[in-house]
């Protein structure tokens, strides 16, 4: 196999990796906010369920979660879902990352001064106006560095999708490496991951800077 062919295949794999990455963020960021609400709920049932959820998602391997999400519908419920491989990957990643994001949101929300809520209340803002206009924008600024951390970890974690043999970059690199008995494809994949993360880090830094207009 020529280097060009290998590079082309890995680039295709990179596109799949990027797809997993983007879809996971798209679903896990809002889901994480919902779970953080559950985690902070006054109702003890909701609060404890959220706590257990976060505990399980953080306490078991993501690789295992991928396997469970993919195989459970058939082996537990006897359901055959066509073309389920890719959706299963996204579901597992989103469920897992939402748990981490939930705790990051919670940290940010709980760090807000109570005076902000009180000022909003006296000015007549209702609860959702207070949250979305006053609290959340400030929370995002505070938690952005932690979100960046998770996001960078996610880029690398997408390689775990190889356990479901989905043709993302790492799966392909391993296959080519085995076929060609060469370590080169894995090294190239490593460089690709690094460049991907360099871009992610740069974008997040820009985002952080864009919020520097206030303190």
């Amino acid at each position: 196999m020529s280097t060009t062919v290998m590079l082309m295949q890995l680039t295709k794999g990179l596109a799949v990796t990027a797809e997993i990455f983007i879809l996971t963020l798209l679903f896990s960021l809002p889901l994480g906010l919902l779970i953080s609400f559950g985690r902070m709920a006054k109702n003890p049932v909701i609060r404890n369920l959220s706590k257990i959820y976060i505990s399980i998602m953080r306490g078991t391997p993501l690789m295992l979660q991928l396997i469970v999400v993919y195989f459970a519908p058939f082996y537990v419920f006897g359901l055959k879902i066509p073309n389920y491989r890719f959706p299963a990957i996204i579901i597992a990643f989103a469920l897992n990352y939402a748990a981490y994001f939930a705790e990051i949101y919670r940290g940010g929300i709980e760090s807000m001064a109570v005076g902000q809520y009180e000022a909003a209340k006296v000015l007549g803002y209702n609860k959702s106006q207070t949250f979305f206009r006053i609290i959340l924008p400030q929370v995002i600024k505070r938690i952005l560095p932690s979100i960046t951390n998770e996001t960078i970890t996610l880029v690398k974690d997408t390689s775990l999708a190889f356990v479901l043999a989905h043709a993302e970059m790492f799966t392909l690199a391993k296959q080519i490496a085995a076929k060609e008995t060469s370590i080169m494809p894995l090294m190239v994949a490593g460089v690709f991951y690094y460049i991907f993360n360099l871009i992610v880090a740069t974008v997040m830094e820009k985002l952080e800077k864009s919020m520097n207009y206030y303190r």
Partner: peptide
């Protein structure tokens, strides 16, 4: 009007 203003910083 609060003691520590509680303006919205953003």
């Amino acid at each position: 009007v609060f003691q520590n203003f509680n303006l919205f910083p953003h």
